[in-house]
Structure formats: structure tokens, C-alpha cells
Amino acid sequence: MSKDRVSRRQFLSYTLTGVGGFMAAGMLMPMVRFAVDPVLKAEAAGDFVATKQKVADLTNEPVRVDFSYKQKDAWYESDVTESAWVYKDDAGKIMALSPVCKHLGCTVNWNSDKEHPEQFFCPCHYGRYTKDGTNIPGTPPLAPLDVYPYKEKDGYLYLGKAKPRKEA
């Protein structure tokens, strides 16, 4: 028997601390994991959808890029097709604009109004946007066109969820 005998009191307090700590950890660990989860998830790939558009083929003239993805609406799964107007700006950076008019949601077209060339034009209420998607004051839309985040993978363009921009 060693000299430092563990007293009954000491033994009990060690055991209780040990077991209590173990139980506390068992409760706290999942909580911490839940709290941290959104942070960890944001670093994952995100919802980018492949398009048929080759990045190398893009010019400074906007082209319409269609892409589709599956959407679940209650129990009904359907293919949703969306479009984007994609071009390279003067600095060579890719711009992918949503074609949905910020006024009431019509589809805008590039360069389709003869009186106002080189602009995005909404045929419903004659809303107009400049090439970078900024709404032209005096026309119905009150916000610039949404922008798609994009990615390049194997030479093809991938688009994410369109994000609204601040008012011009």
C-alpha cells in the first residue's frame, strides 16, 4: 500500500468530477456541433448548376444561357429552366445577369428596342437597364438586375442562385 492513501472523500469527489465531466461533454458536444454546422456548410461547394456555355466562347456581347435544375414542389419534382445574360465586361470579368425584370418579373431582352440600342429592354412596361444591369431612372424598374454568382469548371460556366444588388 502506498503512503498517500486516497481518502473516501477524495475518491468520491474524483469519481463525481470524472463522471459529471463526461456527462457534460456528452451534452455539450452535439450542441456545439449544431451551432457550428452552418459555418462548416458554407464552405462546401454550394448549389452551382452546370450550363452548356464554354467560358472561352464568351465575348463582350451578352448571350442567353439556359440552364435547368430539379426543383421539388411538395411531392412534385420538376425541371426548372432559368436563363441568364452572360458576357465579359471591359476588364474581362464574367457578368451573369438574371433576365427577370425587377419591376414585375417579365423577361428582359438584350438590344431588342430599336430606339435604345445596347440596353436590356423589358417589353411589358418598357423598362430599361444599361449593359451592367443598372436600371435607367425614369423607367418603371426600381432596382438593378440580379446577378448570378458563377464558377468555371473544366472550361464550362457554372451558375449559382441569383442575388439582388443594392439600389443604383
Binding site: 425584370c101 414585375l104 418579373g105 417579365c106 423577361t107 417589353p123 411589358c124 412596361h125
Partner: peptide
């Protein structure tokens, strides 16, 4: 499809 083009009107 037509509705998609002219949603707002």
C-alpha cells in the same frame, strides 16, 4: 412559357 416572358403584364 408565354407567361414567363410577360409575367408582369
Amino acid at each position: 412559357y408565354l407567361e414567363r416572358q410577360f409575367t408582369g403584364r
